[in-house]
Each structure stands twice: as C-alpha cells, then as structure tokens.
C-alpha cells in the first residue's frame, strides 16, 4: 500500500488481521520479517522523530499537567528549544482542539474525550511528517467520537501531515480518509482501496448523503469478504 504525501489513509480490516502491527512497523518500533517500509524516500530501519503516534488509550502522564504532557515530545526532539517557544507551540495546538483553560489541569481531571484531544496535540506538537493513529477514537462514546472527527479534520486543515488511521469504524474511515484501505484476514493483504471522493471540508452531514451510503455499503461488503463470509446480495 502507498499513502501519498499529505493525504489521509484510513485502514480498516477484521480484528486480529495485524492493523496495530502495521502502525508499529511504520513507526519503526518493529522491523518487518519480510518486505520494506519507506517514508519520504528513505527506508524505515528504526524509530525516527518525524513520526507522531496516538493510541486508543491516551497514555497521558498523570504527574504532568496537560501542557507539560503536550510538550513532552519537544523535550526529546528539540531539547534546546526555549521553554517559552515550547509552551507557545503547545498552546497553539490546545487552542485548536478547544482545551484552552485546561492546560494546567492534570489528566485525571479531564474527561475521556478531552484526554484524547490532549493526546492528539502531543502527537502533533513536534510537527511530524506522519501521524500514525491506532484507533484513537475507539474507546469514546459515539457523540464524543464525532466531535473528535471534526477536531481531526480541522487539525488536518491547519497542520501539514500525512496520516495513517487504524479504525474499526467505517463511517469514521469515510469521514476522515482520502482513501480507505481494506485489509484482508490473516495473513493481511491490501484487499481493496477506495478513494473517498468527498470535499475536504466535509461536515458530518456528508455521511447522510446517498454517495456516502453507497461507499459505506461497498466497504461493508469488503469487510465481509475479508472475514471470509458470503456477501448476500
């Protein structure tokens, strides 16, 4: 599979097919037994600081404030950056996700959705080329999840990054993706690629159009095939 620079790829597939493994391969946390991963014309051989990661669990550090949590990657990637600049960069992102006023709170004082917003800010604070997300909205309730989709859309408009999103939610993949990649069951292969032909500034309403319904239908059938089931129409 190929993800063109600056685009958003949503990866769906039956559970246990290796989607999380895929994120770890792209991040350089694992090396492939076979095959190769390339980023920007360079083969991935190990972790690189031009990658941002977000997980289903926000993994915020309880002993740090929200602001200091967001700053964390800068401490690694840009150790000489002045504290003031780090804070300014973090605040810029916190403002985009609507967390201004919460920067001095601890993670335990925030709701699940807010924590996940902070986690997204942390994965973007060092301006990564690639953002890898492993079901970041999976543990949220349906309405919070839709809010986060819109936040994600706005972040994308403001920050230039290539995104790979692992998800179980077909509506999510259509709403956020420029392309949706369906993986087959074990051993996972690229089974189907759909180009999402919807406007970049899409709203949630787009999910209720016949065009989106058709796309979701096709994807649903592809998942059934990936699960090894009959498509019954």
């Amino acid at each position: 599979m190929t993800v063109p620079e600056g685009t958003f790829a949503a990866v769906v597939g039956p559970s246990g097919c290796g989607k999380s493994t895929l994120t770890r391969l792209v991040a350089g946390l694992m090396t492939p037994d076979e095959g190769e991963v390339w980023l920007h014309g360079e083969r991935v051989k190990g972790p690189r600081n031009t990658v941002g990661m977000a997980f289903q669990n926000p993994v915020l550090l309880e002993w740090r404030t929200i602001l200091d949590n967001v700053i964390l990657p800068l401490e690694i990637v840009a150790p000489r950056m002045p504290r003031k600049d780090r804070e300014a960069r973090a605040m810029e992102l916190l403002e985009m996700v609507g967390l201004v006023g919460f920067e001095n709170k601890r993670p335990s004082e925030l709701s699940g959705g807010m924590r996940q917003r902070a986690s997204l800010c942390r994965s973007l604070v060092h301006k990564p080329d690639v953002l890898i997300m492993d079901e970041p909205f999976g543990a949220l309730d349906a309405f919070t999840r839709e809010d986060l989709w819109q936040t994600m859309r706005d972040l994308r408009a403001a920050e230039p990054f290539t995104a790979v999103l692992i998800t179980h939610d077909l509506r999510e993949s259509v709403f956020l993706g420029d392309q949706v990649i369906v993986l087959s069951g074990r051993p996972a292969r690229t089974q189907y690629v759909m180009d999402v032909d919807l406007p970049a500034d899409r709203t949630l309403d787009v999910l209720f159009t016949p065009k989106a319904a058709d796309m979701l239908h096709v994807l649903r059938d592809q998942i059934k095939i990936a699960q090894g089931r009959e498509v019954d129409h």
């Binding site: 990658v51 990661m53 997980f55 669990n57 550090l61 690694i76 060092h126």
Partner: peptide, 29 residues
C-alpha cells in the same frame, strides 16, 4: 509499565535512559 507508555517516547528515538527518567521512574513512585 504498559508498552504504550514506552512507545510514546521510543517512537521518537528516545534512549532507554530517557524513557526511564521521564516515564518509568515517576510512574513507579
């Protein structure tokens, strides 16, 4: 220590010592 906690820094190329000081140690306190 949940592997994800390690991964958020490891994915950025942080050393083991950095991961220990910034994450593992405070989390064990």
């Amino acid at each position: 220590l949940e592997p994800e906690y390690r991964d958020i820094l490891r994915a950025l190329g942080a050393s083991k010592a950095t991961i220990f000081w910034k994450i593992a140690l405070p989390k064990t306190l």
